[in-house]
Design a protein around this nucleic acid. Sequence first.
DNA 1: TCAATTAGGGAAAACGATTGCCCTATGTGA
DNA 2: TCACATAGGGCAATCGTTTTCCCTAATTGA
Lengths: 333, 333
Amino acid sequence: MKSTIHDIARMAGVSTTTVSKVINNKGRISKSTRERVNQIIEDLNYRPNVLASAMKGKSSYQIAFLIPDIDNPIYAKYLKHIEERGQELGYNVVMCSTDNDSVKEARHISLLKQRRVDGFIIASKFKNEELLKELIEEDFPVVLFAHERLAHSVDSVTADDYMGGYMTAKYLHSLGHRKIGVIGEDSVSSNERIRGYKFALSEAGIPVDDRLIVVGGAAMEDAESGAALLLDRKDRPSAIFGVNDILAIGAMRAAKARKLRIPEQLSVIGFDDTQLCLIVSPTLSSVTMPVRELGKHVMDIIIGKIENGESVKQRIRMLPELVVRETTGPVQP
Amino acid sequence: MKSTIHDIARMAGVSTTTVSKVINNKGRISKSTRERVNQIIEDLNYRPNVLASAMKGKSSYQIAFLIPDIDNPIYAKYLKHIEERGQELGYNVVMCSTDNDSVKEARHISLLKQRRVDGFIIASKFKNEELLKELIEEDFPVVLFAHERLAHSVDSVTADDYMGGYMTAKYLHSLGHRKIGVIGEDSVSSNERIRGYKFALSEAGIPVDDRLIVVGGAAMEDAESGAALLLDRKDRPSAIFGVNDILAIGAMRAAKARKLRIPEQLSVIGFDDTQLCLIVSPTLSSVTMPVRELGKHVMDIIIGKIENGESVKQRIRMLPELVVRETTGPVQP
DNA sequence: TCAATTAGGGAAAACGATTGCCCTATGTGA
DNA sequence: TCACATAGGGCAATCGTTTTCCCTAATTGA
């Protein structure tokens, strides 16, 4: 049977008040009492009941992490690092899939609030703007992860998607590519990456051709059919930028189905640098984000809000880096 | 501000007892009172505070899912389906990585118990036998997922690994392969799969050659070096069975590095049927498990134990199925 | 008509911790 | 020696539910 604060108090011959004070380092307790109590706590391996203390308004040491879909391994990677940092700081992470469904988002958030989670980390593709606004207004600890909402005053931790898109396009341009297709999806990150891509092109004096940009679903198959459109055109692009690895791999499949050699006839580059990059062949060039650091930051920020009520908002944007592998090469005449 | 049971009681002109009875369908309440209370509950969108009711011994509607390492996408897949079923039944899933570290396992379990999670789902590769025994002895709801412990009287839900290994080897044998290498890892599932493989061989009258079986780490690189050992031998195997997809893909890489054509010169088959199979090329043959059903079962069992105290132990083993793709073919003379 | 049921509902004690306030020694300075 | 400060610690209320009794009025049966 789990022991309670009463057991400790009884054994130490003090009141529960005293035990509580020892545990929380509050009030005035003599050294000898403190040591005696601590000794007993240790002997009995006592830990305060989190439910009870959460009820008294203390934190529940639980943070919810909302993700749209764990099928994309980048979310598993996020989860891994966020959970890791949580563990270090004594917090548990409750993962919830929202399936890109704004009704589910609402249901989850309501349930989780009722469960007194201390805060929310919301990953990209969150749909329910209204809900987000509510959370922010009632000053509930929320941090966006891997996306930003410029219209809201809310903390966020992301890789610089715009910069990533810019770097990617610039890199492909430096290899001589002039017609660069894009496979995107419907998300803020995707849009940012594409915006960066456009800027790089116009900076290089290349007019942006919207017909080269295909925005569709998030599945590999969507990308495959999207890329097919691009590749079947007479003036097909010499390179394709997938706004994430899965989409890029979809494009690779479309290319392979057409017997196009990668990278000789078509360069392909992804984004996120998931383990998938090393698994496809040729290995996929991509853009890597410092996921571990991002995870650490987001946890530190949200815990700062929870424990110290820090209210200064911040947007952390870490720079991504290009990882050149085998799918990208100079354009062939 | 969240409303409490007192608010409801006040507004309905009844006591909190009555409200509680309405909510939990207990005691005798007149129809009119019941309806009035329910109406107010609905109007205020009231939900009982889970912490408070969990403190009174009711369930916390939280189940912990312990996994060794989310880097293998099969765990993400498990998580996805378990969480999905949990959602349907009103339970949240707390995911915890144990990193294959038995100290972490112990720390997590202690923390989670203190948090009053209702039960544990423990995924394969759990190390701390002692801890497991304790949990079982104190009758804490535990179900093993994707592995069994024959020595303990504990529920489990798994795919039939033995059968999977058997089917795999038999299939390769039917393609004419006689020297079939294995890349395994240190886990119960792996051992079972290998046992099935051995049985298939001996059934076919082929002596088991232990030098063909390499057991190493769980990373792709481990498999790559393991496979290298097999492939650099004069009498190299004509097929390699990776006990999971990652290991199989490691073997593919080793083969590619040696310019061996797959499947002409070497057949490769994996296990788990993760999305990786479709991403490598040639696409990887594998063994698929009904993950969705497994996830549903494990949740239903553990919730049955939690809510109804069901104590009959069961071991559910669902049959896996072969998925033939491009990496396996008849042996070439 | 009267005792025994029953229907409907309430009071109050938990669950395990936290905390504002209070109390009693002892120490301190003048 | 006396008034007062301080150190050390306890009482009891509280968080939001659940649950065990208990009570009252109405109904029932004979």
